[in-house]
Each structure stands twice: as structure tokens, then as C-alpha cells.
Write a protein that binds this DNA or RNA. Structure first.
Length: 892
RNA sequence: AGGGAGUUAGCUCAGUUGGUAGAGCGCCACCCUUACAAGGUGGAUGUCGCAGGUUCGAAUCCUGUACUCCCUACCA
């Protein structure tokens, strides 16, 4: 048995242990197995990404589940992968190019893509390395990348198939446009931020009159694209003008005055300018009223030739110029401050401009129907349940999904345009001629698909689809999807739609949504605030297990997680505690004879101490709690149960109780205790393993009783461990509880009287009956050792003069703990202690008496509640009595 | 504007069918007691957001209200 250092040093253990697991293939799953499948698909992180604290939380939950299921006899697959992340990756490489004074346009598409791939090959597995540091037990052989050949094949097949059905179409529509990125983005990629802007009131002259209509707008530059002004049809102020024209300021273009109930008579002047090509509401009006769609922007969101003299200006510059010009022409009536929400591109941060362009869309209406149904029916459950409503609501109001992006990095859209007949050929394989007119003059769509399009197929594309692979048969539908609620729509809902469409079954049985990791003050972690926490740094400082445990012990489904380094430090201490407890055990198992039955070895019942029976009883309780908690994804309950058991039962008491027998000579009793110690340690390591894999594997490997590896040993629970746990005893537990109470009473007297632990003191314990007498007698050495008592008498109370006295009650058993104080301390502290106790007990007695004298309570309350109160009242009364007596003897 | 979540000890949070409020960290005191000072022992701390209601009894159920946060949508 090897010597352990006196501190747990994660650095010495983690990388070595991880490599060992990997070498021995412990993370691997099999396509075909007699074991039931359990599959989790990792939400693929961006290939550009570093492991951030949010991943660490997300992965810890998944790894805990996977390890637990793997140990519980499942064919467990955690499938890793990375996402090509179109915009993010392209931006990273473009930034690199900028340093070399290059642009992607200068390089050309082909060269640029080569560059991105080489970047990917160099840095693409950075995050995988970091995941290993955390202990992620992924089946690495199956790792996927969203641009892999297989996945790309799936993407094309889905595109073509949906296109054939008419559920993917190309059309000119108003989309959210990011100027800096020069691409369309989806609704979900737009972040609305409240900004302080202005509401400008602009005068539009009614054609042929000297009258003016005043129009209020927050975006004056868009007036260049106005094709109407609109009033409410019932608005008496303007009714007569409907059908006439106004002259567009600065442009002097006549545009009609139209009427639509969309206009709110009470807001602003009641007149709205209509810019169909640059506003989503105006777009709808433009469609219904058949207006001109005047696009005034180019791809960079600079004004184009339709803006006449303003051509070439940015939106900001144009706004400034136009306001000046309006002012000069006396057409600006007033400017008032106005709060408004402005869409910003979540990638570049720029203001999003609604922009009219040709894009590809997924028609979502039909796809949403089954996606709603499976959640309504409970085929797939969402946890926390409150997100179900959010999910369903979003699917109810879902708009078509703009899937084309004007980028180069991604899945190129498999559509070819014919230069002669304009026909569009959509095909899974590259084509060289138009399928309609057979012309060879065709060119492929320049655009790529939204990154989330390939992500939506992830649960089946990673398992081999469109091939009907064994893996697909075995692992689809996957068991549980663990992810943040921030990508419920981006990803989860879309996987559901695509899974149901192409697999005819849900992609996962269960959705577990966790919150966002925030800093200790509850703020979002961000670069600008400088409050981000680097998980790798935390791992280096405290160890991966401490970090993992700090997540698991505090995650509550759906709620945001406030990260606290201090707490992580606390769990580092916990790991150290486990380490040292094991170290103590090893020191006392030097001469332990490992039974031939190995892990199945049972101690001889007759040789077991009451402490052995008690700890086995406690072990059965914690195993039960953990089992139930994990089944319900209550990670914090499982973690804290293990924490409590390990620290407060095993370390604080069992080890202390065991010291005397271990320090004594070898005997059948000592052997039994050694076996119990070895077995409990073995169970503890396994129980804790999914949460703290490194330290448990390391210690497990050194245990006298073990199998080949903790990671693949059986997860302990009351079914598996029945024979061992049956040796636990509730009667023993009650006995030990009494002993613990007696020791606590002694410690309390000691502490409150400031009697140094170094000082050995005398004590008498007076039992209430023969049974208690026997129990105390049996446990005398524990009481003297742990209570640091020199001279313990068990029997008559005797004289209480100048004594500290505490009455201990456990069930029916009572014992008076008496400690002579004369000469030890002045008695002031003891008087205070007793008075404090009396005060508290008196208060309790009065509430209990009050309640029990209430007829209605006695009549209505459950019998056991009344009984419990009566018992408690009696107990408190006799405690007070005993204290009063002691106080009297003390002061006499 | 609509929807959701929350408000409990100094901090972060538990509290499962209503039965005298819990944990971790922090704090105070005493201790290097032969696994661990990243430790041990003892201790202090709460009108459970506010106001009503139901009940013998409410942190828990109901109604109202204040504040905080999140999501979705957006009025020119």
C-alpha cells in the first residue's frame, strides 16, 4: 500500500488518470450491446472557442450523468463534437488576415477557405484538450465536426428533401442585416437593446397645397425610402386627405396618403411614414397596399443610388445630414427624446438594419406542429417544467427561418442557377448542367447555410444518418439533452423539428435546461466587465473535482448559477478531507487480510462493533438518497448527501469511533472493523465518482478491496449492496446516536466553559434505566477518548454541587451528564450557559403549552403531531428541572 | 405590451403533500487531541418582501401589492 501525501494534489493525479482511462478504453460505447443504451449528445462548442465557465457547468452535468449511467450498467455514449460556427470562425480568421493587411475578398473564396481549414487544423481541438482537463468522459472515437463529410451529406439531404416538399424556398423578403458582416442573420441572432434616441417630427407637404402633415420617426434617414404615409381610416383629422399625395421632403417625390387600421391615432401625430424596404411593419403595409419597395442601402449598410445626394454615406452620417437639411428647409418641426429598442447583431454588435434581399427560408409552420405535440403529450419532457410553456409559445408564433448567410465558411447551399433559363437546380450532388434546359452555363449559390441548420440535425447526423447505422438504431432517440435555456429556440426546438421530420421520432426523451453562469454578484460574465472566470484556471488552482463539485452541489434546474471561487475552495477542502480520511484508513489497514470474496466480502456479524453497524446503516441511507436524487436530476441533493455522509458521519464520527479498535491488537473485532472500513471506502469512492472522478479513481486504485477501475465498477445503491447494507442496524444507530449526544453534551460544557481540549476532566453519567446503563458501559472507551475524559463514572448522579449538568434524551433513553467544575473554572460561564438553556427551553415550553391547551389544536391536528408535542413538552420540562437543580447547586 | 422566475441568516442558496426555520461560506471563542490548520470543538445570527384571507396552526395554500431578474415582441 503506497504512502499518500498529506495533502491532495490534483496536479499529480488528473492528467495521468485521464490518460489511463483513455488508454483502457473506458469511455467507449458499443454500437450493439446487451446493455441498455444511454446517450447524451454534447452541445457542440464553437471550434474557435475556449472552454468557458458555462461549458464547464454544462459538461459537468453531462459527465456526471454519463458516468453514473455507465457505472449503473448502461451502454453509455457521450458523443462529442464541435461546430464550425460560420460567423465566429470566419471573423477570427479575418482578424488574423487584417494583421497581415489582407482581406478575404483579396484572397478569394478558395484561398480563404484553405486558410480557415488550416486554422481549424491548428486550433480546432484546443477545446477538446480543455474538456479532458475537466474530466469529460466522451467517446472520442465518435467525435464529429459539423463540416465533416458525413454531416455535410446529411445537411444536403435534408436541404434537398425539404426543398422538394416546398418547405425550403427562396424568396425576396425583409431580413435582419448585419452591415459589418455583410450578411443576413436570423431573428434569434438579433439582440434588442434599449437605447435613448429621439423622435423627430418632420413636415411633409400635401401636394398642391400649403398644408403639411407632420410625421414622427426615430429613423429620419429612412424617409429616403418612403413610398407612402399612412393614417388611420377613422381619423377625422386626416380623413379628407386620404388618396391625395404628399411630397417627400428633400426628394420631392410625390407619395400617396393611404389609410390602415395599423396606425395608432393617439401616438405621435397619428401619421406614419411607410418605408416598406426598411421596416418590418412597413413591409407588411407595403405588401397589402401594393407599394413600391425602395431599397436605399447597400450590403455594407451604406446608402445606395436610390438615396440620391446621400449616396455613399453610412446610416449615421446620412441621419445627421438629413436632419441638417430638413432644419434648413424648415421641415423639422421638433425633436423630442424617445426611448426605443434597437436590434443589434449579436455577433458584431452593430445596429441591425432591416434589408430587402433574396434569401433561402425554411417554412416552419408544418414542422412546428409535431414538435409541439410531442412536448404536450410528454413524449419528451422539459425540465424545469416552466420552460414547456415558453417552448410551446415560441412554436406557436414561429416565423419562417432565414437560413442563408452571405458568408464563405459553412455548408454551401446546394442550389445551382441557370444563366440561360433561370431555373434553380437543387441537388445533393454537385451538378454541371441545368436540370431544366440542360444548359452548362450554371453557377452555384454563393451563400452558405446558417450554422444552426447543421446543428439542428446533430442528434442523428452524428450517429451516421442518412445511413441506417447500428449506432443510429441503438442510440436514437438519445436519452437526455443538457443545455442552457439560452439556446432553447436556436437549437433545441429546431432539433426537435428536424428529428421528427427525418427520424419520425423525438431526438431526445428528456430536455434538462440549466441556467447561465454569472459572477458572484449575479452579473453576466463578459469581457468588458472583466469578470469572466476561466475554468481551466480554477482547475489549476483547486482541481477539476472541486470545480465540478461546486457546480453539482449548487445547480438547481433552470436557475442561473452564481459562481463563487470561495465555494470552489470549500470543495477543494472537501476533496482534501476525503483524501486524508482514506490516508487514515490506509494507515490502519496495513495488516488487513483481504478476504478471498474480494468486493463481495462481508464482515462476520457477531464481530462487528456497534459503530460498524451504525455506519453501514448510514451508508444505506445515503445510497438511497443519492439514487433517488440522481434519478430526478437533483444533483445538489445527491452531492450534499454525499458531502454530509463523508464528512459528518464517516470522518467526524466513524473514524473517531474506530481509533481505539484500530490502535489495539489484532482480533476478530478489529478485522471486522477493517473490513467495514475498506468496504465503506470502496462504496464512498464509487458513490462520489460521477461528481469527482479524479480523486475517487486515484484512491480507488489504492484500496485493498476493489475491481479494475472505479469508472467502470458498479454504482452503489441499495439493490446492488443489499447483503452488505443488511448488516447495518437501526438499533445500533439509535445506540450510537445516544453516545454521540452524550459526547456532544460534554463538548458543549467544555466549550462554553472554555475548558481547553488539552485538559482532561472527570465526568459522571447517570442513566435513566438499565438499558441506557448498558449502552453507556459498552461505549465507555469512546466517550472517554472522544470526550477527553480522564475519569468516567457511570451510575448514580451523586452530589451535584459545583457541577455542570446536561440532560441528554434520545427516544426513551435519558442520561444526565455531570461534570464537576470546582477548581477548573470560575462558575460564571456555567451559570450563563445554564441560564441561556433555561431561557430557550422555557420559551419552547410556553409555545408548546399554549398550543396543547388550545382545544381546537388537540381536536383537529393529526394525532402523531399532538403526541410529538406532548412528548417534547415533557422532555423540555424535565430538562429545565434538571438545569434549575444544577443551577441551584452551582450557586449554593 | 405579453409570458416566466424570484424575494428566507452578512453572502450564496435549500426547505418534497401546511406541524416550533436549515446548509455551505463568512463571523466569534478555544484548540497544532497520533488522517487532515485546506483541520477540530463550541457559539452567535432570521417579523421567511409587504398587506390581507383560509386554517387549531402558513416560509409553505389563496388574493392583492412592491421590488428584482429573464424571455418574447415591439409604436412610427
Amino acid at each position: 500500500m503506497s504512502q499518500l501525501s498529506d495533502r491532495y494534489n490534483p496536479q499529480d493525479v488528473e492528467s495521468r488518470t485521464y490518460a489511463w482511462w483513455e488508454e483502457n478504453g473506458h469511455f467507449k460505447s458499443t454500437d450493439q450491446s446487451t446493455k441498455p443504451p444511454f446517450c447524451v449528445i454534447l452541445p457542440p462548442p464553437n471550434v474557435t472557442g475556449f472552454l468557458h465557465i458555462g461549458h464547464a457547468l454544462d459538461h459537468t452535468i453531462q459527465d456526471c450523468l454519463i458516468r453514473w449511467k455507465r457505472m449503473s450498467g448502461f451502454n453509455a455514449l457521450w458523443l462529442p463534437g464541435t461546430d464550425h460556427a460560420g460567423i465566429a470562425t470566419q471573423s477570427v480568421v479575418e482578424k488574423e488576415l487584417k494583421k497581415e493587411n489582407l482581406t478575404r475578398q483579396q484572397m478569394g473564396r478558395e484561398k480563404f477557405l484553405e486558410r480557415v481549414w488550416s486554422w481549424k487544423h491548428q486550433y480546432g481541438d484546443r477545446i477538446y484538450k480543455q474538456m479532458r482537463r475537466l474530466g469529460d468522459s466522451c467517446d472520442w472515437d465518435r467525435a464529429c465536426f459539423t463540416l465533416d463529410e458525413g454531416v455535410s451529406k446529411a445537411v444536403k439531404k435534408v436541404f434537398v428533401s425539404l426543398h422538394k416538399k416546398g418547405w425550403i424556398y427562396r424568396g425576396q423578403k425583409l431580413v435582419n442585416w448585419s452591415g459589418p458582416l455583410e450578411t443576413a442573420i436570423s431573428d434569434l441572432e438579433v439582440e434588442h437593446k434599449q437605447v435613448k434616441g429621439s423622435l423627430w417630427h418632420i413636415k411633409y407637404q400635401v401636394e398642391g397645397t400649403n398644408e403639411f402633415l407632420v410625421v414622427a420617426t426615430t429613423r429620419p434617414e429612412t424617409l429616403l425610402g418612403d413610398s407612402a404615409v399612412c393614417v388611420h381610416p377613422e381619423d377625422e383629422r386626416y380623413k379628407a386627405l386620404i388618396g391625395k399625395n404628399v411630397l417627400l421632403p428633400l426628394m420631392n417625390r410625390p407619395i400617396p396618403i393611404i389609410a390602415d387600421t395599423y396606425v395608432d391615432k393617439t401616438f405621435g401625430s397619428g401619421v406614419v411614414k411607410i418605408t416598406p424596404a426598411h421596416d418590418f411593419n412597413d413591409y407588411k403595409i407595403g405588401k397589402t397596399h401594393n407599394l413600391h419597395f425602395i431599397n436605399i442601402l447597400d450590403k455594407r449598410c451604406h446608402l445606395n443610388e436610390n438615396a440620391g445626394p446621400y449616396k455613399g454615406l453610412s446610416v449615421q452620417e446620412a441621419r445627421k445630414r438629413i436632419l441638417e437639411d430638413l432644419k434648413n428647409q424648415n421641415l423639422l418641426e421638433k425633436e423630442e427624446p424617445h426611448q426605443l429598442n434597437v436590434g443589434h447583431c449579436s455577433r458584431s454588435g452593430a445596429v441591425v438594419e432591416p434589408f430587402l434581399s433574396e434569401q433561402w427560408f425554411v417554412k416552419t409552420e408544418q414542422l412546428a406542429i409535431p414538435a409541439k405535440r410531442v412536448v404536450e403529450s410528454g413524449t419528451t419532457t422539459i425540465e424545469p417544467e416552466s420552460w414547456t410553456k415558453v417552448y410551446l409559445h415560441w412554436l406557436n408564433i414561429i416565423e419562417d427561418w432565414c437560413i442563408s448567410r452571405q458568408l464563405w465558411w459553412g455548408h454551401r447551399i446546394p442550389a445551382w442557377y441557370c444563366d440561360e433559363c433561370d431555373h434553380i437546380t437543387v441537388s445533393e450532388t454537385d451538378v454541371t448542367e441545368c436540370e431544366s434546359c440542360k444548359s452548362k452555363k450554371i453557377h452555384q449559390d454563393e451563400d452558405v447555410l446558417d450554422t444552426w441548420f447543421s446543428s439542428a440535425l446533430w442528434p442523428f447526423s452524428t450517429l451516421g444518418w442518412p445511413n441506417q447505422s447500428e449506432a443510429l438504431k441503438t442510440f436514437y432517440p438519445t436519452s437526455v439533452l443538457v443545455t442552457g435555456h439560452d439556446i432553447l429556440f436556436f437549437w433545441v426546438a429546431r432539433m426537435m423539428m428536424m428529428g421528427l421530420e427525418f427520424m419520425r421520432d423525438v431526438p431526445f426523451r428528456q430536455i434538462y435546461l440549466h441556467g447561465i453562469v454569472r459572477d458572484s454578484q449575479g452579473r453576466k460574465m463578459s469581457k468588458s466587465l472583466g469578470n469572466s472566470v476561466d475554468p481551466v484556471e480554477m482547475i489549476e488552482k483547486y482541481g477539476a473535482d472541486a470545480l465540478r463539485f461546486s457546480f453539482l452541489a449548487h445547480i438547481h434546474s433552470g436557475k442561473d448559477f452564481k459562481f463563487s471561487e470561495q465555494r470552489t475552495e470549500g470543495y477543494r477542502n472537501f476533496m482534501n478531507k476525503i483524501w486524508n480520511a482514506t490516508r487514515f484508513a490506509f494507515g490502519n489497514l496495513q495488516d488487513f487480510q483481504v478476504p478471498s470474496a474480494g468486493t463481495k466480502a462481508l464482515p462476520v456479524k457477531g464481530h462487528m462493533s456497534v459503530y460498524d453497524q451504525w455506519i453501514l446503516h448510514k451508508l444505506s441511507l445515503v445510497e438511497k438518497t443519492v439514487d433517488e436524487a440522481l434519478e430526478q436530476n437533483r444533483f445538489s441533493d445527491a452531492a450534499s448527501a454525499i458531502y454530509q455522509f463523508s464528512w459528518y458521519e464517516f470522518c467526524d464520527w466513524y473514524i473517531e469511533f474506530s481509533k481505539p479498535v484500530f490502535s489495539g491488537p489484532q482480533s476478530p473485532e478489529r478485522q471486522a472493523s477493517q473490513l467495514v472500513m475498506a468496504q465503506v471506502l470502496n462504496r464512498m469512492m464509487r458513490l462520489l465518482h460521477p461528481m469527482a472522478p479524479f480523486i475517487t479513481e486515484e484512491l480507488y486504485q489504492k484500496l485493498p478491496i476493489k475491481n479494475t477501475a472505479c469508472i467502470v465498477d458498479e454504482y452503489p445503491n441499495i439493490r446492488v449492496d443489499r447483503e452488505l447494507l443488511a448488516l447495518g442496524s437501526e438499533a445500533a444507530a439509535a445506540e450510537v446516536d445516544l453516545v454521540k449526544e452524550v459526547i456532544s453534551a460534554i463538548r458543549n460544557i467544555r466549550g462554553e466553559n472554555r475548558i481547553s481540549p488539552a485538559e482532561k476532566i472527570a465526568a459522571r453519567i447517570s442513566p435513566s434505566d438499565a438499558n441506557v446503563q448498558k449502552i453507556l458501559g459498552n461505549n465507555k472507551s469512546s466517550i472517554t477518548t472522544i470526550g477527553r475524559i480522564e475519569n468516567l463514572e457511570i451510575g448514580e448522579a451523586g452530589s451535584l454541587a459545583k457541577c455542570a449538568v446536561t440532560l441528554v434524551t434520545v427516544g426513551q433513553s435519558r442520561a444526565q451528564v455531570i461534570i464537576p467544575l470546582e477548581g477548573l473554572v470560575d462558575l460564571e460561564e456555567e451559570v450563563k450557559r445554564i441560564q441561556k438553556s433555561i431561557e430557550k427551553l422555557t420559551k419552547d415550553i410556553s409555545t408548546l403549552t399554549g398550543r396543547l391547551s388550545n382545544e381546537n389544536f388537540v381536536k383537529n391536528a393529526a394525532e402523531e403531531v399532538v403526541e410529538a408535542d406532548k412528548k417534547l413538552l415533557e422532555e423540555n420540562k424535565s430538562k429545565v428541572e434538571s438545569l434549575r437543580e444544577a443551577l441551584a447547586r452551582l450557586q449554593s
